[in-house]
Design a protein around this nucleic acid. Structure first.
Length: 651
RNA sequence: GCCCAAGUAGCUCAGGGGUAGAGCGCAUCCUUGGUAAGGAUGAGGUCGCGGGUUCAAAUCCCGCCUUGGGCUCCA
């Protein structure tokens, strides 16, 4: 009888063969076994019930416990299988697609794609969930079997699972593993591993029903996707559900209405934003901050039209590559025009309007340029995905040797601005050429190498850690994408700094060098917010509608306790207005409690409660929206306090 | 575009084959009250749009529109 040497942590111990992973843990560590769902054997994930390899070499085993990320993924994946098993039980004849765990999408934990004999509706979800709970209680084992390709195909053909057969044909060369759940009609073609039995599952919930295409391809089968989530423990699921509710409370569409910031009306068109006066204030402040920075950084301000001749879009390449997202042409005196989906060609027009010398570069043109894109109706979402929006756009026309410095300044700019809004977690991604497929990259290797090197060195010089992503560059140049994390941990892709070898070529841009020869400039597209509408949406959710003083649509509200005080209240309000603040006064005959409630719900940063005492002492009693009553002070002292806050753009 | 759900007063929603309900908001009046809702009265709706069934449709059926959740982290 042979032996297997098992290494577990520092322990090395021989076991008589054959033995399973479970046998090893039973002998080595009963404590950890309770939390263990599967294991890594020589670094490879396997089921607890799998046999230890008898190769003669030492076998290294590690537990995959329920409190690890790997463990959670296992739970979610196994729960997805439980979901499929419950559906097969309730709806015989259902065709299965795929059912992965989702670890990066904070909204969901797993899904399973199916084609049921009838269209399922949301009303079916509780029924399916109940079945899953019942199956979980029965501690049904997940069983694994290794079979030949031909036999797997037989099994799934016999079960009339065409999609599974397609997968098997694609993926399997000789043998593969399949999984059963005992006492259930479920069989899946799956690498595993899984939890040992369904009793390890329980903290799960089905969340949503949606449509999905097989392999994400709109020309393939339309399937139904059931989303759910799962955790190791019920408390974690409860906490997650609670956080989800919190996120709903921050929904910018809800707050946009409640705080009267913006609206979208079908009478005007889907995906078109009406900025209300209070939203307009926030936008003006957002633009003011940008303008200050742009001025200091040597940008110039340009303004360009919303439509241009169709021929321009042919030259720019938009007509060829981007036509689906552009509004149809409109004719004026036999000449066709199209709404602009991007601002670049106009800025190029400004560059080209006169000959440029190397001494003139860089040229930095900025514009809050409004563009229109014909997004599919189903993808529209509040402020986040719209059909008309303004980009805080800028195009830099630079000499090849200037790329580094300009990119570095863009990075400083981004960090400064996002920091002002309180986004302290900013991620940078450098997208470069690479990967197996050749995307038909434009421009010489020389240019690319130089450009990628300059982007990377700008990031390094600024001490910015970044992720380098091979193969994600656009065909026309490498780029840096900027992502921010908001107050509740959601990540938003916002700005981009993009090098472009394409448009300078297409538009034959040039400048005269010190050698008196013509050279081609590089073009850098950069936007920090991407779309100011979208960034506004992100801000609303980030602050949950409670904008910092400098952004708040109403900064101070004056609340007289009785009608006797109304006159004094108006004086106070006027004085603050003259000092440059946005002030309201509430002289309605409500009780002070009601006025405060109103102001709190409008999330106004400061409330000045004025009664006989304040009138007599020439003071204001200050209530801050989060801290509550912070005591009485002179109006001058209050003014000083908020002036400082406003000027420093404190959070 | 495709799958599921929902469209009733400005907002949040209840109701449901026999001519429309609540709370909030709004208006007017009473009240002048010290840190998150004082009281009374009143105005407000082609029940998303179009068609069908019916003596009768907001309600049942069909179509459309809009809104919301989604639409490859592959076995």
């Amino acid at each position: 009888m042979s032996e297997i040497n098992v290494k577990y942590g520092e322990n090395l111990r021989p076991f008589p063969a054959p033995a399973t992973v479970l046998d090893a843990f039973k002998a080595l560590d009963r404590d950890v076994l309770k939390r263990t769902l599967a294991a890594k054997v020589n670094g490879e994930q396997v089921d607890l019930g799998s046999s230890l390899p008898e190769t003669g070499e030492t076998v290294v085993i590690e537990p995959i416990t329920s409190d690890s990320d790997d463990g959670l993924e296992l739970i979610r994946h196994s729960t997805a299988h439980l979901l499929a098993a419950a559906i097969l039980d309730l709806f015989p004849g259902t065709k299965l697609g795929v059912g992965p765990a989702l670890m990066e999408d904070p909204r969901y934990g797993y899904y399973y794609d199916i084609i049921a004999p009838r269209q399922l509706t949301e009303a079916d979800l509780p029924v399916i969930e109940k079945k899953m709970k019942a199956m979980a209680k029965q501690n049904l084992p997940y069983r694994r079997e290794i079979v030949e390709k031909a036999r797997i195909l037989d099994i799934f053909e016999g079960r009339e699972e065409p999609l599974k057969c397609e997968l098997i044909s694609d993926k399997v060369t000789d043998t593969a593993s399949i999984y059963y759940i005992d006492n259930s009609p479920f069989i899946d073609f799956c690498l595993g591993p899984h939890v040992p039995h369904t009793g390890k599952l329980g903290a799960f919930k089905l969340l949503a029903l949606s449509g999905a295409y097989w392999k994400g391809d709109a020309t393939r089968e339309q399937m139904q996707r059931i989303y759910g989530t799962a955790f190791a423990r019920q408390e974690e699921l409860d906490a997650w559900l609670k956080q989800r509710e919190e996120a709903e409370k921050r929904d910018h569409r809800k707050l946009g209405r409640e705080l009267d910031l913006f609206s979208i009306s079908d009478d005007y068109g889907q995906g078109l934003i009406l900025w209300h006066p209070k939203g307009g204030v926030v936008r003006m402040e957002m633009e003011r901050l940008l303008r200050e920075e742009l001025e200091q950084r040597g940008y110039s301000f340009v303004f360009t039209p919303h439509i241009a001749k169709r021929a321009l879009w042919v030259t720019s390449g938009h007509e060829g590559n981007y036509s689906d997202s552009m509004y149809a042409p409109t004719s004026i005196e036999e000449e066709e025009y199209r709404l602009k989906p991007m601002n670049c060609p106009f800025h190029i027009g400004i560059y080209k309007s006169s000959p440029r010398s190397y001494r003139d570069l860089p040229q930095r043109y900025s514009e809050m340029g409004t563009v229109y894109r014909a997004e599919l109706s189903g993808t529209l979402h509040g402020l986040m995905r719209v059909r008309g929006f303004s980009v805080d756009d800028a195009h830099l026309f630079v000499r090849p040797d200037q790329v580094h410095a300009e990119v570095a300044d863009c990075l400083d700019f981004a960090i400064k601005v996002f920091d002002t809004y309180g986004f302290d977690k900013v991620k940078f991604e450098l997208s470069v050429r690479g990967g197996a497929e050749n995307k038909g990259y434009l421009g010489s290797d020389e240019d690319w190498n130089a450009a990628e090197e300059q982007l990377a060195s700008a990031l390094k010089e600024r001490g910015i850690s970044y992720e380098r992503i091979e193969g994600e560059a656009a065909f026309y140049g490498p780029k840096i994408d900027i992502k921010i994390e908001d107050a509740i941990g959601r990540v938003w892709q916002l700005g981009t700094i993009q090098l472009d070898f394409n448009l300078p070529e297409r538009f034959e841009l040039e400048f005269t060098g010190d050698d008196n020869l013509k050279h081609r400039p590089f073009m850098i597209h950069r936007a920090l917010f991407g779309s100011i509408e979208r960034f506004f949406g992100v801000l609303i959710e980030h602050y949950a509608g409670a904008f910092p003083l400098w952004l708040a649509p109403v900064q101070v509200t004056v609340l007289p306790i009785t009608d006797r005080i109304n006159e004094y209240a108006e004086q106070v309000a006027d004085e603050l207005r003259r000092a440059g603040f946005r002030v309201e006064s509430n002289t309605r005959s409500d009780k002070i409690g009601a006025k405060i409630r109103d102001a709190q719900m409008q999330k106004i940063p400061y409330m000045l409660v004025l009664g006989d005492q304040e009138l007599e002492n020439k003071q204001v009693a200050v209530r801050e929206r989060k801290q509550g009553d912070i005591g009485a002070m002179s109006l001058n002292k209050f003014k000083e306090m908020i002036t400082l806050q406003k000027e420093k753009r404190r959070l």
